[in-house]
Design a protein around this nucleic acid. Sequence first.
DNA 1: AAGAGTTGCAACCGCCGGATC
DNA 2: AGATCCGGCGGTTGCAACTCT
Length: 379
Amino acid sequence: MGRAPCCDKANVKKGPWSPEEDATLKSYIEEHGPVGNWIALPQKIGLKRCGKSCRLRWLNYLRPNIKHGGFSEEEDKIICSLYINIGSRWSIIAAQLPGRTDNDIKNYWNTKLKKKLWGKQRNKEHHARKNNSKRGSTNISSENDNFSVISGTASDWSELQQEVTKAPLANMNQNPNLTTSDQSSVWELLVQLGGRFSPNYNQEPVPTNTNMVQNRNDIIPHSSYYNPFERNMLLASSQPLGNSLTGALPTLYDTSGLDNVNSTVVLDPNMLQDFSMSEVDKYHGRLNLLSDGLNTSNNYGTDGMMNGSICSSALSNNYEGSNIIWEEISSLLADNSTCRPPLLCDYEAHYQSLEGGWRGPEDSCFEDQPRLYVPVGHS
DNA sequence: AAGAGTTGCAACCGCCGGATC
DNA sequence: AGATCCGGCGGTTGCAACTCT
């Protein structure tokens, strides 16, 4: 048995609001102030509308100082920056843009901004392909479209992050030190905005790989930690794991500055020529697997630009009680012996070493969940 | 000019979590 | 403690306006 409807569906008007209805609602609220009970409001003022519909109409259209359309470049950057950091949490994003509604931003992102950014990316890829074919260098992309999509995604994410994290946030005046350019700031921002993280998230010692979890049970959530990846979240200085895995070809990373919290792993496709094809092939199948996962489970097809956000979304929404916690991710992340980010095989090796052993892809947090964000250079 | 296809956006739907009873 | 109510949210839909052929 479901919840009782909030109003009598048969007797409420639906569809576009008439000017008269708008005027009725607006004049009431202007006269009486904030509405205490939206459900009771329509009856009170003689509107044949659902209370929720009234609320929405007021918030998205009638309330003062609402701006519609005409998003500025600055607003674009803020939206992109926040989308990359927190995902599709439109209300939080809207809170950073005075006069904008979550609905407006959501529509703007879905209909224009996303395409705009993706168009940019497609142009870059097109030019890159042209240049590569001129140079006649080894080019995996030409062998496998999936790889092409993902590798383009990886570089684009880091570029996009670099670009958009420069954008100022409108309401950050209270704390001028807050930027989105480092993890702790993003955390602080999210905490300010109501994020549910460990209150001392930035004080807890982060295990190194020497105290890496030794038992499968250790991966189950414990302690006072919340998974910082809960809900849609990509840290500004991180990449989606999917992309990290895509970049798992050894030394395709630019690992310079990995000890820096702000560092971003950048895929360098040019490095590819330094590897034998057998090495490349070894990872190629995995890339296909990853790519399949990305393409079959997101609504945007091969829209690589979107993969990052879909990643987190899948993690938070479809993977109930994500059994990966921040400490473990961090512990797995740093590989001091080789001074490189961990490769997929490292994760596999780690899980193989766990009690119970490795039971194949169905056993893998990573194979099943290619959409997990791994922060890079977390200190 | 007209029909088909595409885009943009207002509005709706259903779920979730906090507050209250 | 559990049920219910309500506000808030993100995803989705429907349709008018616009563009293309």
